[in-house]
């Protein structure tokens, strides 16, 4: 591998064979791996560990919808737990557009009937978005409404994740 002044991030997402309703050969999800990489690389302070690679492996045990946002939030929690320097926690929330309704954190069934989806990955305390994907049919006001919903959910999620990390450190100190 080439010498590098900054750290490297390597992500891999895979599914178990029994994660999906129909049994599938447990395989790597290349598209998810690259999405996870792009979602996290902006948040990690790569300059702090030159000549080093951080591997992030995610294994989905059971898929119930909104998989990628969960994988991203979970990975950032794991990075924080490992003591990797980050600008902020990365949280991610998705929502589905079903007719007139916006459904936040959709389950598998809702995702299969959705007209469009929106996923935001952000660093809530910096109010910065690291990743935003919108697919399907959307009107501009709907997008605005959806983004606001997701951003609110992201900051709530960040609070939960933060208290989780605090609990883990206090219990390990005891």
């Amino acid at each position: 591998m080439m010498y590098s002044d900054i750290g490297r991030l390597n992500c891999n997402v895979s599914y178990t064979t029994f994660a999906t309703p129909v049994r599938a050969q447990g395989s790597d999800r290349k598209e998810f791996s690259s999405m996870l990489h792009k979602a996290l690389e902006g948040a990690i302070i790569l300059e702090t560990f030159p000549k080093t690679t951080v591997d992030v492996f995610a294994l989905v045990l059971e898929s119930g919808g909104s998989d990628l946002p969960v994988v991203i939030s979970c990975a950032s929690l794991a990075l924080a737990d490992a003591g990797i320097l980050m600008y902020d926690l990365v949280t991610s929330v998705s929502l589905s557009c079903l007719g007139k309704n916006l459904v936040i954190d959709p389950i598998l069934e809702e995702e299969s009937y959705q007209d469009g989806s929106l996923m935001i990955t952000c660093m809530p305390s910096r109010y910065e978005v690291t990743q935003l994907t919108i697919t399907g049919e959307w009107s501009t006001p709907k997008i605005n409404e959806g983004m606001q919903l997701c951003l609110d959910a992201c900051s709530k999620l960040a609070n939960i994740m933060r208290s989780c990390l605090k609990e883990a450190t206090t219990s390990s100190q005891e």
């Binding site: 178990t16 064979t17 029994f18 999906t20 049994r23 045990l61 059971e62 898929s63």
Partner: peptide, 25 residues
């Protein structure tokens, strides 16, 4: 441990952890 499978179990011996699931076809 896995609701999408027909039978499943999580076993831990010390920190060795195994997740097994059965799917019927």
């Amino acid at each position: 441990a896995v609701t999408s499978a027909d039978g499943s179990a999580l076993a831990k011996i010390g920190s060795t952890t195994m997740l097994a699931a059965v799917k019927m076809e």
